[in-house]
Nucleic acid binder design. Structure first.
Lengths: 161, 161
DNA sequence: AATATATGAGACCTTATTAATCCTATTTAT
DNA sequence: ATAAATAGGATTAATAAGGTCTCATATATT
């Protein structure tokens, strides 16, 4: 798996829309500017997000994007996989046909497990949690926030290291 | 992070050498053939493995590669990161300088945690465990599971190629 | 010492993917 | 009707991956 720039932008876009709130219309220009995303690139990304049902796109004058779901109902995994497809850590998992021995390979199993673990982690994070303390925008641009700790967000998981 | 082909080949190579056993010399040709790795590509990969102290390379006639550590002491993480560098799931983590807001970004924290989790998972797997039941070679190609002794290898090297 | 064999190291090429941009069409508020 | 905004596909640019080639170097064998 590789988090592409498109995926990073998508996350930023969804974060911004989540801040605005479900159902609020925001112009592409504003999002692009505030979240530091190339405008044209954002247009393409938005199409994927719209296909996935995450946002609605309004054309025409006073057009823009609208968050269609409650931020709490949108997981990080959902947004990521909308952009890059189902996560898999290696080709052997993504295209088992290309691997002659995947069926009875111990390494294969490890990658499968690791992938599941990663997907579960990302699935446990939703955008309501993220906007509570996320500031993936320039400090000068984003609105004031209480500096809450993320530990509350990920506390259900075992702390690594 | 992206598991490149070079990393997959490196794992196969290390698996093969682990089967042979620590200290056993095996020719590059044999490994390449048995583990289905382009010979020249394997040469390049081996250099990285050697730099990391995982194998020793013998040049000259009857040259080849030798496993320098006990398979039980070699983790999957070690081999993977030798090939692709320290694992990180997105650029924001790998090159924080490029991300203007990484310090106080909740998403950033999630990626950090996910990365640590993944690295820990891969760190818990060693090559002794893997060879116990791994068969990442073609069933028809790979040899019996008992590791060869050095004498056996040297004396049976009369066959051409 | 000479020769054959095997790998070292890095340059080089080819292809694939990513990232971004451009242009024309379409939609919608006023 | 007009202006404002996005749609959607084509195109380009940059980067990285995967693999190959060549010459240099090391070593066993005779």
């Amino acid at each position: 798996m590789r988090l592409t720039r498109a995926a990073e932008y998508a996350i930023r876009c969804m974060l911004y829309l989540s801040r605005q709130g479900q159902g609020v219309l925001t112009s592409r220009q504003e999002i692009a500017q505030q979240a530091d995303i190339p405008t044209h690139f954002l247009a393409k990304i938005a199409q994927d997000l719209a296909k996935a049902g995450l946002i609605e796109i309004r054309q025409g004058a006073r057009g823009g994007f609208i968050l269609r779901k409650n931020p709490a109902a949108i997981t990080l995994l959902e947004v990521v996989e909308t952009m890059i497809g189902e996560i898999s850590l290696n080709d052997c998992i993504a295209r088992p046909a290309g691997c002659k021995v995947s069926y009875h390979c111990a390494v294969h199993r490890v990658w499968l497990d690791a992938r599941d673990q990663l997907r579960n982690t990302l699935r446990q994070v939703n955008f309501e949690q993220l906007i509570t303390d996320a500031s993936c925008f320039l400090p000068s641009l984003h609105m004031p926030l209480e500096p809450k700790r993320l530990e509350t967000i990920v506390s259900s998981r075992t702390d690594p290291q």
